[in-house]
Design a protein around this nucleic acid. Sequence first.
DNA 1: TCATTATTGATAGTAATACTATTATATTTG
DNA 2: CAAATATAATAGTATTACTATCAATAATGA
Lengths: 223, 223
Amino acid sequence: MNIILSHLKIQVNEKIYVKDPETSPLGKKIVEQSILLIDEIGFDNFTFKKLGEKIGSNESSIYRYFENKHKLLVYLSSWYWSWMEYKLVFATTNILDPTEKLNKAITIVTEKVTNDTSTEHINEAILNKIIIAEFTKTVQTKEVDQENKEGFFLIYKRVINRIVGIVKEVNPEYPFAKSLVSTIVEGSLHQHFLTEHLKTITDCNESVSTTEFYLNLTTNVLR
Amino acid sequence: MNIILSHLKIQVNEKIYVKDPETSPLGKKIVEQSILLIDEIGFDNFTFKKLGEKIGSNESSIYRYFENKHKLLVYLSSWYWSWMEYKLVFATTNILDPTEKLNKAITIVTEKVTNDTSTEHINEAILNKIIIAEFTKTVQTKEVDQENKEGFFLIYKRVINRIVGIVKEVNPEYPFAKSLVSTIVEGSLHQHFLTEHLKTITDCNESVSTTEFYLNLTTNVLR
DNA sequence: TCATTATTGATAGTAATACTATTATATTTG
DNA sequence: CAAATATAATAGTATTACTATCAATAATGA
């Protein structure tokens, strides 16, 4: 996995950035350090000025890569889901049994990411923390319909629908495949958040438990 | 229901506001009109200055009721979940069969709110729209642990755990009652959002469908 | 290698946001 | 009617979220 990914460039919709951050050292530094800073102070308190100070670079230079911090978060999310899609594809290819394939897929999307080192400048474990804490903010805006039209959430929707395909293999009769998968993917992020902050309304406590919960749920729903 | 609620004062944690908005006409106006304005322009674009202009009142007067717009949203959410708790209690009281009671409870929390007129100055249907679009923002902040300690999310957690109790009546063996219920409650908000904005990753299309999906899911999971 | 071009940095500036403070003016209540 | 309270008006500050301009540096290619 690590070997394969190190040769792959994660594809992100061009409209999300002003200049592709993958094309320069400064761009990579922006992506790398923004992940650390957002994790540290939270997206709401994050500003390009603070990021500039952190990377010893000018605020205005960052604006040459991203229009605003919202777009940067959309970029990080797209990168994350694109990376997740690779993980999904590689993990489920060659598995013939649909149930086994689905279990594998659910495990991949619901488990907490720890210490994946497939890319040099992106810390996937911390990016996963950001997605857990901030992902819904990328869609929950007044501009969602416009941005959806422009393809900002394409990769996310593709990940969902890829798993929907597997669900349909397991049980073609089940009428809520899309809602089930979107509930699992978004819900598992939420469960990880609850595990961390609102422990009294979740049973999940370690990485494995969230996955267990959703594997159990899926099995019961589709049988 | 309407008659009963008109005599009830929804209780909200005192720490959320500077001055209880229920105690004055201006306070009520702030609550009433903030719901309309947040629905109209979105929470991110909402400011106390704009609200002041809308209600023909001064920005500084609003600050005497709420420290900042985040606290106002927490107040609106608390009000919503408190109101939801009343609906839950009244709808499930006197139902003896646990399964029937659970189905009723799930229907209440997952269905879209339409035209409830139990309180004069709060439009519950529009408040429901705000909760669908903005609720996660009340918890997904860097201050969540501190605010949780201060009891900001108590009512929300109580609603969840009330339903958890019913789940345990239906199936005491099921090991993920809390995660199931928090997934349903948060997930149904998300499904309503998807129905409105990202239709390709949900099967829900009208109010009834989201409820159907979760009723079906719960039945399958708990049997 | 030198000239061109692209990239980054530094500085300045604007409008809006998120408040706080002060004082004046109503309004309520005892 | 006086005292207390609530609201409005105005002003002011620090920060945010940018945009614009120009200088300095680095990369490239003829």
